[in-house]
Structures are given as C-alpha cells and as structure tokens.
Nucleic acid binder design. Structure first.
Lengths: 345, 345
DNA sequence: CTGAAAGCGCTTACAG
DNA sequence: CTGAAAGCGCTTACAG
C-alpha cells in the first residue's frame, strides 16, 4: 500500500510504545477521561509529559471518522469580499471559534449550481452544520438537507416556502420608517432604487417604501422606481438614474434598498457635479463607514451585524446538539432582528 | 459502541450489496479507475446508475484518513472583515475551488497565541497547506512547519529571518514613487502617517518615503512622522494629527502607509472642516472605492489583489504537489509584485 | 474481470 | 487500574 510521504507525525501508538502503555490508556488521558476511567495520577502525568515533549497533535480526521463529528461548520456566501457578508463572516468565525468550531467558507457567486455543489461538498466533507446566505433559484439541495434534519441556518435572505431556521432583519419595518421619515421631512418625489425585488428580502423593503407612501397619500410614481439588475449594477444604475432624472426632474429623494446601490449612486451624483447632500433627502438600508463623510445627512437603518452572527451560531450549535442527542425535530426558528435607525433632521 | 445518529447516509457497502458486487469494484468505478482496473462497461454503468439513484456521497473523511490528504487549505488572516484581506480571501477561494480545494478560514486577530493555536488546529485537522498573513511576534510554530517542509505561503507581511514562500508587494518602491511624486508637485512638508513601522512591510514603506525626501534634499522632520498604535487607531490618529498640525502648521502633504489610516484621516479632516483635497498633497498605499469621491486627487499605489491571490494559490499547490511526490525541498519562492500607481497632476 | 483483506489513526464497549 | 479488539468508511496491493 502506498502512503503519501508526510512529515514525521507522532501517533498515540508512539507514545504508548515509549511508555509501555496501551493506546487506550494514552487516548483516555489525552482526551480528559482519565479520572472517569480511573487511570492513576502517576500514569496521567507520564502520558501528558510525554505528549508535550513529543509535540503530539491528535489526528482529528481519524477522530472525526470515528465519532461522526468534525467540529467544523460550513459557511456559504454569495461573495466573500462584500462588506456586509465579510462582517457577518467575521462574527460567525469569532463565535464559532469560541466554541471550538472551525469554519469552512465558500462563495456561491450568486449561482445556484455552485451553491448546490458547495452544499454537497460540505456534506461530503462532514461539516456538522451549514450556514447559508442563499441565492435565488431552485432549492432542491437545501430541501433535502432540511428534510433530513441536517443542521442548517439561513440568513440575509428568506424563503417563505422553506421550513428552515433563519435569521433576517425587519426589512419592511425599517424601510417603512426610513421612507416615512423622508416624507415627514417634506420630500414628496422619492425614488426607490432597488435590485432583485422578487427576492422576499428586497420585496419587503419595497413594500415598506410603498406602505409609507400610501399612508401619506402619495401616489406611487412608477417612473421613480428603478430595479437595477445586479449583474453589472455599476453600469445599470447609471442608466436607471439617467432616466429617473429625465422622466421626473422634480425628484427630491432617494431610498436605496442596499448600501451598495447608495454608494454607487453617490459616485454618479458626484460625477454629475450634483450637490446631492443638499438637494435630496437620502435613506438607505445599511451603510459603510465612509457614508459619514460622503453623505453625512443620509438616514440609515443599520443591520445588526454582531447580533446576526451571534444568533446564527447559537441556533446552529443548538441544532447540532439536538441532532446529536437524537432529539425530536423541534420547530424551526425564524428570527427577525430590528435594524438600528439613524435619522437626521 | 455508541455512534451518533446521523441521518441516513448511503455507503459503498450499500451499493455493493444492492448490486451483488464487492466494495472494491464499486469504489474503483466511482473513483474513475474502472477502465484502468478492467471493470466491464456493463458493471460500470450499473454502479454509476445505482450511485446516482441512491444519491451516494462519498465520505471524504474516510478517504482523507486513508490517503493522508484532505483537499483543504487553511487561511489565517489578522481580520476577516478587513477590505484588503477579504478581497484576497475571495481570490484565494476562487482559485482554490477551481482546483477542487476547499478553504478553512480563521482570524488571528493579530494575536500570536491565537495564530499558533490556529496553526496547530489546522494541522490537526489535516489541511494540505496553509496560507498565512502573519502577525508580529514569536514564530516558533511557523518555523516548525517550515522545518518540516509543510506547504506554507505567507503574504502581506514579510520576515527576512524566515525561509518561507511569500508573496508581497514592492513596498519600498511604491512608497518612494508616491512620495517623489508629491515632492515633484511642489509639496515640501509631507507628513508620514504609519503604523507598526517595526514590521518589515511598514518599515519598507517608511524607507521609500525617506529615500524620496533624501534624494530631493529635504531634511527629515521628525515632527511630521506619526506612528499610530494599531490598537484603537481611530482614537490614536486624532491625537497624532493634532500634534502634527500644532508642531508643523505649514504641513502641506500626507503619505499614508495604508488606506485604513488614510480613510481615518479623511474623517478627521472632514470633522475639522478642512478643505483637505485642495490644501494638501495626498498619497496612500492601497485605496477603497470611496476614495474616488472622498479624495479624488489622492495618489495611490494599488495592491494587485487578484495577482496576489493567484500567486499564493499557485505556489501553495505546487508545494503540495512537491511534497506528495516526495521531491527535494526546493528553494523558497519570494514573490514581489508591483503595485499599480495612479498619479494625479 | 472481480473480491477478500489490510490499513489509515483514532474512540470506546467490554473484559479482567 | 489497564488492555485487546472492533469499528468509523474509505483505498488499494495482492490474489485469483
């Protein structure tokens, strides 16, 4: 049998042979079960010292194969480098590592096929649970996991038809509050700049906008609504803004359903030499730090990144525990976290 | 023996039993060695069809234990959410997944102990190689890996005393060019805003600054040099800028050794109501997209994120191949990539 | 063309 | 207080 040359690695066997003990005894000591198994203190000391000296590192692959757990969770993001996703990833990693879980991360690039492949790969690699910011499209693979009671938490996006644990924000309420605030401040021709409104997350944000208009008795002006295709949004938003300014020159406000679009619009305004901070009422779901300089008067509903990360990991680890202890499948948790509103007058 | 209840998983054994074949045969077909081993086409078809129908997923943990390889690489970053690091992480994931490698990611939080723990954890989990943006401090664990010829590539920071593969940028040259450009444009009192100058990376950037001054016959003014402690840099930079403006009111330029400090300085300038784009010559190593609006005239040396990611993965996979084929230890590669300069006049 | 069996490095029920 | 042995689910040298 051919075994790949790997550099010298100390095994339980090596320690056992050196000390004239059985592998069993060594394993028990090093896995902290020595007292439970009644190993003498003297032996415990010997084993620990020897393991230290030889710089023993357990082979966790072997352990995983044996116990059926890897202490690893898988995270699937549409994009690793996106500001929001990478912030959530950071919180997830932090929380997970506190509980001794490692993190595998992969990018679906907003592509269902890739997402499915990653889901299958993660399962094949034996992750204990999966965290997913899903992309749109067929959900066969996800449904299979849920049906099998595989620990899975979705976030950011929400699919009412899937009975999965999920952590999202109060999309409609925050959007409603932001739009209402703009209206209260006297703006009447508020454009809605969004992307992918067919996704529940984005759809709810649009709903909030519309509800605020309706309550104020402002008629919806379709010329003020821009649905930016996400692919090449940098180009598409230029066209969309051009046509809004052409069709509705009296536009006096902008509600952006994501900070990414807001940022891109600022670039557009800036290129056009517009004094957009003075001339328009601005609002956006989420922000980045540079908004403080770029658009100091923008109204923002800030996503609670830390809480999102914490909730996700809490739920997932509970799921994992549950499954390991053979519990009944409990009802899925659907967490909705409030955004923090930063309103200017 | 107690085995954790995991949901029904199809094994090679299940397929073998169903088809009245041996596990060996099934394994050979599914791992693409059927022709080599002379399995009849008919059997091949049967096996493939059955595996498909039963939705067979190989247990990669078992495979890994057997072959001593996991097809997984580990990535250690000081911070996952940092703009530069998450961009590099994205490229690494992309390149790695193309080659069928998965990515484990962990954050050292710029803490040597954590870094060491992660290195040990990654090894225990059997990653095939490690990519590391190292933090300062003792390098015992890294040296051990290098000594053992474990596939390892460092990036962003460089330690001359470590004989490791590394991918960095031309820190001194880019800094020299940026500073020289400011001088050519007539600025004479250029402040140097840096952090951690004892790190080779940052030290080289400072050297570039000093070389440009020296060549121009400008005497180094220590009052214009600010070394911002990285911890709480948001607070520390305020103090540092305050004292620069107090000590050298005629300061007319700023060279930032990282975009993070530049961004924070813009916030400061902005809060003070300074017209910093008009009054100062600005330069920075790396940027973020909002610089286009915030500081349209800043001179920038842009880090080649894509090339960095590609080089890292290329080298690491070559290291892995090398070790697996039992090659001699080849000389370590120390790649220095040029930044792209964006100079304004 | 196909299979029985050993082995990867652990964990743990069972025996003494 | 300690150990021999089975098993986790694969891969593969060897035999036929």
């Amino acid at each position: 049998m051919y075994q790949i040359t790997t550099y010298m690695r100390i095994l339980l066997k090596d320690i056992a042979e050196k000390l004239n003990l059985s592998i069993t005894t060594v394993s028990w000591v090093l896995s902290g079960q020595a007292d439970k198994k009644g190993i003498s203190k003297a032996t415990q000391e010997l084993v620990k010292k020897c393991a230290e000296e030889m710089d023993y590192q357990p082979n966790l692959i072997a352990r995983s194969l044996n116990i059926g757990r890897t202490k690893t969770i898988g995270l699937i993001l549409p994009s690793i480098s996106d500001d929001f996703y990478s912030s959530v990833a950071r919180e997830i990693e932090k929380k997970a590592s506190e509980q001794d879980y490692a993190l595998m991360i992969a990018s679906s690039e907003a592509n269902v096929e890739k997402e499915d492949n990653i889901l299958r790969m993660f399962r094949a690699k034996g992750v204990d649970g999966i965290i997913l910011a899903p992309t749109k499209g067929s959900k066969v693979e996800i449904e299979r996991l849920i049906k099998n009671n595989f620990p899975l938490v979705m976030f950011d996006r929400f699919f009412p038809e899937l009975d999965a644990d999920s952590v999202i924000i109060d999309n409609k309420e925050s959007s409603y509050q932001l739009t209402k605030h703009l209206i209260n401040r006297g703006y009447r021709n508020i454009a809605l700049i969004t992307t992918n409104p067919h996704l529940t997350t984005m759809g709810n944000r649009c709903d909030g906008y519309m509800q605020a208009l309706e309550e104020a008795g402002i008629k919806l002006n379709l010329s003020l609504i821009a649905n930016i295709p996400y692919k090449n949004y940098e180009k598409n938003i230029v066209k969309a803004l051009d046509s809004i300014f052409e069709a509705v020159p009296e536009v006096d406000g902008f509600f952006f359903t994501t900070h990414i679009l807001a940022l891109e619009a600022f670039l557009y305004f800036n290129n056009k030499g517009m004094n957009f901070n003075e001339d328009f009422g601005l609002a956006s779901i989420h922000s980045v730090s540079t908004f403080k300089i770029l658009a100091p008067k923008i109204n923002v509903a800030e996503m609670p990144v830390v809480e999102i990360g914490e909730n996700i990991v809490d739920i997932l680890l509970k799921d994992i525990e549950n499954r390991d202890s053979g519990q009944e499948i409990r009802e899925r948790l659907k967490i909705v976290l409030p955004c923090t509103l930063y309103l200017n007058n």
